[in-house]
Design a protein around this nucleic acid. Sequence first.
DNA 1: GATTTGCTTGACCTTTACGTCAATCGATCG
DNA 2: CGATCGATTGACGTAAAGGTCAAGCAAATC
Lengths: 147, 147
Amino acid sequence: MEHPAPATPELFSIAQLAEELGITHRAIRFYEAKGLIKPLRLGTTRVFGRRDRARLQLVLRGIRLGFTLAEVGEYLDLYDTDRTKRGQIRLLLDKVRERIAALEAQRADLEQALAELNDIAAQAQSALNQSALTQSNETAGTKRRAQ
Amino acid sequence: MEHPAPATPELFSIAQLAEELGITHRAIRFYEAKGLIKPLRLGTTRVFGRRDRARLQLVLRGIRLGFTLAEVGEYLDLYDTDRTKRGQIRLLLDKVRERIAALEAQRADLEQALAELNDIAAQAQSALNQSALTQSNETAGTKRRAQ
DNA sequence: GATTTGCTTGACCTTTACGTCAATCGATCG
DNA sequence: CGATCGATTGACGTAAAGGTCAAGCAAATC
């Protein structure tokens, strides 16, 4: 009993990870081929650690945000650039700021789309309320369904 | 002088629109083939009105947000559903709310990515400041480059 | 009237992001 | 020991989103 069952295990098979993340093993292998993850190997079999899992989650988030895998790769690079050499840090900082600017632009698009949809929803809702009123007027005197 | 030159014209050729929106005529034709826009025709030539232009801008925003053209099409449908029939409005409202939820999820992803990048930027910045201090200490007594 | 300019359709090509077998290989189960 | 299970590589297929010719037509220009 030295190690009680961990809430989240340290190692994963490709099947476990695929299941957990809702993707196929094919997708995972594809991401590996693209250099986005580098799982260890036990003989010929892939073995994923928590770090690999975290990376995969970053990959999936990037995809959800509409990035290509190449862009996701650049994004991941920002996480693992060497932070000891001044020159590297300068470059990193520039790239990170570019990315931030792009994401903020995307956020602006997103907010605008949301505002428009909320507008439509509000209009639709009030149209429904209106027609409900009209109907209840037209049927005035008729008993309303209880509850 | 009945009509002073309008700031933005009422009609556009495909070339004008492509130029203005930074896309190719091929892309525009492709979107039309997908049913996202329906420009008028003068004989065989496409003629775009302001409404077409606005739609195209919506299309492009959708693409920037990472949606497929099919999804963009559904999005556009939300804009033109008939708002006179109660049943339609109900359906519309449901769909709009779905879309809103999805966009809000995307915004959450976006905010998280932004937070992480800001974190990295802050760390990088402070690392730079640190190393600047160190250097200025090591070179104490040496004249600093003016300006 | 011949040519250039701008538009048209049609056909095929390309990249990205996987899906879908097929064949193989090693560990485990009966 | 044969079969099954989970993993592997490799090859081919596919949908989406255009790019890139090619050939034609029509109006303006030289």
